[in-house]
């Protein structure tokens, strides 16, 4: 592939389960492409140099900073943003836990933090507080602080663990 600097390139990716396309210049950051071209403004942009984590999205499942990625690099990838979380039944379990534990105020940092927490919870079923704090160290929250977030993540980890009943038991329950 060779794209000229002034060329607008068609980029197609899977955003929250749906195929979407739009146009981007080589230098267009992924966060700007999502917001301005695809209209997915749930993802926020803070520092634009990788420090604050506000722009975090999942790229093929991995929490990544969308200000440190080009739109053209997302071609063909699976992207998940904060818009993927709430379903028809309302807020997701993690979003509800954030509300319950007062883990946000202005919410500017929250969209990115939720995406990191989702990947983390997929990978670490039974996390320690230290592990949660380590994962959150990749995000800056300037108005709420982290205690509520830590509690929300631990809370969700616990309820998700309890909900995953081993197969044999599940059968018995069904009977």
């Amino acid at each position: 592939m060779h794209a000229r600097a002034d060329q607008r390139i068609r980029v197609t990716l899977t955003l929250n389960g749906r195929e979407r396309s739009g146009y981007a210049e080589p230098r267009t950051q992924l966060c700007d492409f999502l917001r301005h071209e695809l209209g997915a403004t749930g993802t926020h942009v803070g520092c634009e140099h990788g420090v604050c984590g506000a722009c975090t999205v999942r790229v093929d499942g991995r929490a990544s900073r969308s200000c440190l990625m080009l739109a053209v690099q997302a071609e063909g990838r699976r992207l998940d943003t904060v818009e993927s979380l709430a379903g028809e039944e309302g807020l997701s379990d993690l979003q509800q836990a954030f509300r319950r534990h007062h883990a946000l105020q202005c919410g500017f940092c929250t969209a990115g933090i939720l995406m990191s927490c989702e990947e983390f919870l997929d990978r670490v079923a039974d996390p320690s507080e230290a592990q949660v704090r380590d994962m959150l160290s990749g995000h800056l929250c300037r108005c709420t602080g982290y205690t509520g977030m830590v509690q929300a993540v631990l809370d969700v980890a616990r309820t998700r663990r309890e909900a995953t009943v081993p197969d044999s038991q599940q059968e018995n329950n069904d009977v």
Binding site: M1, H2, A3, R4, A5, D6, I9, E25, P26, R27, Q29, D32, E48, L70, V72
Partner: peptide, 11 residues
Amino acid sequence: MKPAAFDYLRP
């Protein structure tokens, strides 16, 4: 800030 313009090549 946004990057200055560049050609993008993916060998």
